[in-house]
Design a protein around this nucleic acid. Structure first.
Length: 849
DNA sequence: ACCTCCCGCCATTCA
DNA sequence: TGAATGGCGGGAGGT
């Protein structure tokens, strides 16, 4: 097994290094050419139509097929992975071949467009890895390898990986290489996204959009163009929100290029999209709305039909991946206007980050805080603040820099030492059997696998894990073991403290450190003081949702993985009982809902002035800790950066806890470090940030220049300072805001289509156990980074990961230096157990077409 | 005719 | 400079 694993890993590397091999189309072609003879019909045959047409296959298709056929390795690997059973393998393959040869049959076998869908591909991809991989083991993913095995262009793999990365399910190690984290960090990140989304008032934005649309329809009938009132309103003086930041003279700029690329990044879109689900009450988001929000966050100016269409395309891409993950499901929403496609969240209910996964036993204080928050959050959730302003999502230039620097750092890190060990998961072990057969049809196999998985696993979650060949082996291992230990990690717990954050005059963005999830990962969020806008409570619309049987639905259904995962997760949780306390549904929810808001103070921020005005309306929410004002102002997007766990302890503990820990640790650190920082463009209200208790040691707080214990915090501070984001004297005003406005989002009552209905509804009840996990998180704190100097934090020896981060050079001014970067890896390692039991209702399963 | 969204060109970014 | 990434949108499959 190990050997095999090694092989897998190595090969990928080699491939990557050697060739550039596979670059899909072009390179691939070349490669293929050589290979082709061998191939034959195997893999996913190309489109039937083409064949029928006279042209059997497109060159690309041929290549793909050939490749698949050719490389026994791939097949072997797949087999190893358990993608398909033996039976599937040979016999199936033969069948496939046969079919290929025979015309009609062949055509049938040919993959239809659906068969090539990103969703299906994602399923295949996911089938290769356990939901809860053992952290100890290296779960390397070589893109080239995956692309080959799945017989797809690398481009497609990027799409999948980017989305997964946005959910911290994978992190980038180096070129061509990613580490698979599975769902260990999923709840955490979702909690974080939810928190951010709440703070940003995404829900409000959604409502506004709906309202606007509603109004427009009746009135003018304008499409969502720039003319859209909403958009207009959003746009600042400049014309569009984003511009504000960018245009600011002093700011460097964000090179448009940089921004543009990053901003439009699929990762960012993915996070935003997910956030929309998390914050919206019905948890149903139509593509149109999502596209509008995303579009306008970007550059309003760009908003034109074509851009909008592009956004929609991307959202479909993302939605397909999310569907494969069983996080969302396609539905149709019927509104006054008519019916439109939408997606419903079918993932775990998440509590806002702070509480998220849990850290275990948190300090009492924390707990109390959490509760308070939660309660408040709930309120919020129920009543969205109806502030009228419109939030801008624009991103501050500083953020851009940050991002850039981060990325550069990340790359550096990644590129460096990545060679890890690769122990693949257990899977490889199982599949050791080398299949020589040429069956090329990976596609067929995949399908079969999927089917199998879907059929079996769902019902028995546990069973699947063990039994199914596919993913199987691995998953079980990880979950149980990992989770608990991490949870337990003492390090995580820290006294909560509220850190006052002051926006530096220089840069609007305020960095905030979010509480850590149990995994220990903390996130630093950079907020931009943006223009605050008031949001008017949306008029209620009540759309009805009809279940659609879309391909997506099928996918979701098909994907046993997801279900299996869920089940897995659940099982472990229950068994583990790691954080029983956390499980309290009630609290969780509340926590989620509550968000304290701090007064946004962005004095310095360029936009601040504007914003403030709008911000006048505020809603407050009091936290137990410190009542804070909630300002209505929204901040433009920030980047959510996962910090490595601050506590070295946590990591250690984890390691110790883990079986493998010993071996892993070294590698682990290495891998983890690189994780990507996921840029969130979400808007964050500074206030909210402030509200969050600082998890880490007080030292972390900005005010303390002291060497921080946590590297992460230090890094953050450092980075911020360099960037100028943080002002030395940052303070957060806690003044209570005016009354909060309760808005009832109008969610329309969504009628779920029958398919989902049962399950979905179940899910609808939010408060799942998952929420509980959040509570645990409380211990974590948000640290507002204070301003201080940009002193580069000295890395501590304590954590390897941290060190790596620190090392990243960063010039004070230059963003590059910023340490903050990818902590994912770190998190990942440390985290192991984050999850809270998710509850995924089996709804998805029901959905089948 | 519209909804989806695959495909792959080609700009960026990285090494 | 070439390879790795990934934005982007044409246009085809699906309904």
């Amino acid at each position: 097994m190990e050997n095999e694993k090694e092989n897998l890993f190595f090969e990928p590397h080699k491939r990557g290094l050697m060739k550039t091999p596979l670059k899909e189309s072009t390179a691939a072609n070349i490669v293929l050419a050589d290979i082709q003879p061998d191939f034959g019909p195997l893999t996913t045959p190309t489109k039937p139509k083409e064949i029928s047409q006279g042209e059997p296959w497109t060159p690309t298709a041929n290549l793909k097929m050939l490749i698949s056929a050719v490389s026994p390795e791939i097949r072997n690997r797949d087999q190893k992975r358990g993608l398909f059973d033996n039976r599937n393998g040979l016999s199936d393959v033969k069948d496939c071949l046969h079919e290929h040869f025979s015309g009609d049959e062949y055509e049938k076998s040919q993959p239809s467009r659906k068969e090539k869908s990103l969703g299906l591909l994602c399923h295949k991809f996911l089938a290769r890895y356990p939901n809860y991989p053992n952290p100890a083991v290296n779960n390397d993913i070589c893109l080239d390898e995956v692309a080959e095995e799945l017989n797809v262009e690398r481009r497609r793999i990027y799409d999948i990986v980017n989305v997964l990365e946005s959910l911290h399910m994978v992190s980038r190690l180096a070129k061509n290489r990613y580490t698979w984290h599975g769902r260990h960090n999923l709840n955490q990140i979702l909690g974080t996204l939810k928190s951010v989304g709440e703070e940003n008032k995404y829900a409000e934005q959604i409502m506004m959009i709906k309202k606007k649309e509603y109004e427009q329809e009746f009135e003018v009938g304008k499409s969502y163009n720039t003319e859209d009132p909403i958009i207009k309103s959003n746009t600042g003086q400049n014309g569009h929100p984003d511009m504000c930041c960018a245009e600011r003279p002093g700011v460097e700029l964000r090179a448009a290029s940089v921004n543009s690329r990053k901003d439009k990044s699929l990762k960012v879109m993915s996070q935003k999209f997910v956030t929309l689900f998390l914050v919206s009450t019905p948890q149903i988001v139509s593509l149109e709305i999502a596209a509008k929000i995303l579009t306008w966050e970007d550059h309003v100016e760009d908003l034109d039909r074509s851009k909008f269409k592009t956004k929609i395309r991307r959202l479909y891409d993302i939605a397909n991946v999310l569907s494969s993950l069983d996080l969302i499901k396609k539905v149709h929403v019927t509104e006054e206007r008519g019916r439109k496609p939408a997606f419903k969240w079918t993932g775990p209910e998440i509590s806002p980050n702070p509480s998220v996964s849990g850290l275990s036993p948190v300090l009492p204080c924390a707990a109390s805080d959490l509760e308070a928050r939660q309660s408040s959050k709930e309120n919020c959730a129920k009543n969205l603040f109806s502030t009228r302003g419109k939030p801008n999502f624009t991103r501050h230039p500083s953020l851009i820099k940050l991002v850039k620097s981060i990325e550069s750092d990340r790359r550096k890190i990644n590129s460096a030492p990545s060679s890890p060990i690769k122990t693949h998961k257990a899977e490889s072990t199982q599949n050791s059997v080398p299949f020589r057969s040429k069956m090329a049809q990976l596609a067929a196999i995949c399908k079969m696998q999927l089917e199998e998985q879907s059929s079996e696993p769902r019902k028995n979650v546990t069973v699947q894990l063990a039994g199914s060949g596919h993913c199987q082996s691995v998953a079980p291992l990880d979950t149980p073991a990992n989770a608990e230990p991490e949870m337990m990690a003492p390090s995580l717990i820290q006294p909560l403290g509220v850190v006052p954050l002051l926006p530096s005059p220089l840069s609007p963005a305020v960095p905030v450190i979010l509480p850590q999830t149990p995994s220990g990962t903390s996130y630093a969020i950079y907020l931009q003081p943006a223009q605050a806008q008031t949001i008017t409570p949306p008029p209620g619309l009540s759309p009805t949702v009809c279940p659609t049987t879309s391909s997506n639905a099928m996918i979701s259904e098909d994907s046993t993985d997801a279900t299996g995962e869920n089940a897995d997760s659940d099982a472990p949780k229950s068994s583990v009982s790691t954080r029983p306390g956390s499980l309290l549904p009630g609290p969780e929810r509340q926590g989620a809902k509550n968000r304290e808001r701090e007064p946004a103070r962005e004095k310095g921020s360029k936009r601040a002035s504007m914003l403030e005005d709008s911000g006048s309306k505020k809603k407050f929410k009091e936290d137990q800790k410190a009542p804070e004002n909630v300002s209505t102002t929204l901040f433009p997007s920030g980047y959510l950066i996962p910090l490595t766990q601050c506590s070295t302890l946590g990591a250690e503990s984890i390691l110790s806890s883990n079986e493998n820990s010993g071996t892993l640790s070294p590698n682990h650190s290495i891998y983890s470090s690189p994780i990507a920082v996921t840029p969130l463009k979400l808007m964050v209200s500074p206030t909210s940030m402030a509200a969050v208790p600082v998890g880490h040691s007080p030292a972390l707080s900005s005010s303390h220049p002291l060497p921080i214990q946590n590297p992460s915090s230090a890094i953050v501070n450092f980075t911020l300072q360099h960037l100028g984001l943080i002002s030395p004297g940052v303070q957060v005003s806690t003044s209570p805001g005016p009354g909060t406005i309760a808005v009832s989002p109008r969610i329309e009552a969504v009628s779920v289509t029958p398919e989902n209905a049962g399950a979905e509804q179940g899910r609808a009840t939010k408060c799942d156990a998952s929420i509980l996990s959040q509570n645990q998180t409380n211990g974590q704190s948000f640290a507002g980074t204070g301003a201080q100097q940009p002193v580069p934090v000295t890395p501590k020896g304590s954590q390897p990961v941290a060190e790596s981060f620190f090392r990243t050079p960063g010039g004070p001014t230059k963003p590059t230096g910023s340490p903050c970067m990818d902590f994912d890896g770190a998190n990942y390692t440390s985290v192991g157990t984050l999850f809270v039991p998710q509850r995924k209702l089996e709804v998805s399963a029901e959905d089948v077409h």
